[in-house]
Simulated assay, not measured.
Amino acid sequence: MKLLDTLHRWTGGLIGLVLALLGLSGTILLYEHLWIGLPGTGDPLRGDLATVAATTEKLMAMPGTQGIIYADERFGLHQMRFEEGVGAYASQSGEVVTRWASQWERPELWIFDFHHHLFAGDSGEWVIGIAGLCGLFFVISGVILWWRTRKTFQLRLWPKRMSRPSIVMHHRDLGIVVAPLLLISIVTGTMMIFRPFAMVMIAPFGSPAEAAKAIEPPKYRGGPLAEKPDYTAMLTEARRRFPDAEFRILSLPRKPGDPIMLRMRQQAEWLPNGRSTLWFDAATGEVLGARDALAMAPGAQAFNMAFPIHASKVGGWSWRIVMTISGLSMAMLGSFAVWTFWFRRPKPARRPAKKAALAST
């Protein structure tokens, strides 16, 4: 138990700040649709084919446009994507509301980049993944260590005093209360970063190998991008195949020969951007392939639920409040763990002075 206690304290001291910042940034992102504050963010969704097709043709005709993330019921603006870091928001009628030349001009973008990559791309994802695994150990070991002090349990939202003993007691008792919420946040977040961990978590729902195969996008080859692709025809075909689905993401090819990709969300899908996908030949607009997310392997469907649970994209306000408690608790527990470990460490006990033992003869 002493070894477990030592590992728990060192885990908190070394990785606690990363977990705290991830918890805080994640909580802020839960409410981004409320604080972005641009005209049109609260507009009702206009998802009929005629409106979406007309707006798509208008926006995709703008020079440099690489794709569109369509408006949804929570956020009433389309997000346009140009070259890396450059983008714009547009109304559902196709009028540009604001542009940016770098993600640093939009707080929702750089906070998202920090939460998912720590501003370090793939390397940052590895750090977050390792932090997630450490956080998982942190929660499980904390529950085990709490059991021996369960009789002194006192729930406080804030430490009684800012002394090390009070902070440690608060950390221990608050941690046991929010442990189930932290597990949900950490497990779902780590699943999105570490694919092997995700495959272990979805194993009870079906074959991980089948799930991994279903998740990977198929490879299609087509012709070069046409000068004026017929987006209306593509959207019309997509709506025919998935009549109740929302248009979510339209992406142009990254390199010659790649297809145009259109993602849709069927009503039964939890993932906000959906996994129901169509691929079109960039030269002719012909359908190269389609994937029905609701027909994917059970394990793949379980994997697709990780993000909406983690980001509170399901469950309405009640689940968003639950994940807010989880995020703020992680921020508090992680920051206090670092503070007590590095700046409020107990002073070593002084050795009693040796008494003179000389006897006169």
Rank of each mutant, 00 (worst) to 15 (best):
A353K: 15
L278W: 00
I215H: 01
G132D: 02
V314K: 03
G40M: 11
A209K: 13
G189T: 09
Y89V: 00
L19P: 09
E95Y: 04
L59G: 06
A356L: 14
I144D: 05
V322T: 05
T6L: 14
G274V: 09
M323C: 01
I140T: 03
A233H: 03
Y89W: 09
P352G: 06
L59H: 06
P259D: 02
D5I: 13
G223P: 03
W126Q: 08
R164L: 03
S312C: 06
A233P: 04
R351G: 02
G124C: 01
D5W: 15
S25D: 01
S329G: 14
A359V: 15
K228S: 05
D230A: 06
I202N: 07
G142I: 01
P208T: 03
R241D: 08
V168S: 11
F341R: 12
F112A: 14
L49C: 05
I260V: 09
Y31R: 12
I128P: 07
Y231W: 09
I68C: 03
A226G: 02
I309L: 15
L19V: 13
L133T: 03
A71I: 05
R263F: 00
I184H: 03
E210R: 12
S91Q: 11
F343R: 15
H310K: 12
T149Y: 13
G135F: 09
G316N: 03
L155N: 03
A349I: 12
G76D: 11
L328Q: 02
S360N: 14
G121T: 08
T190A: 11
R263Y: 00
T149E: 08
G85I: 06
T232R: 15
T190S: 12
L155R: 06
K151C: 00
E227K: 13
M234A: 00
L17E: 04
L252N: 06
V52T: 14
P217D: 05
G189F: 13
D281Q: 10
S91K: 07
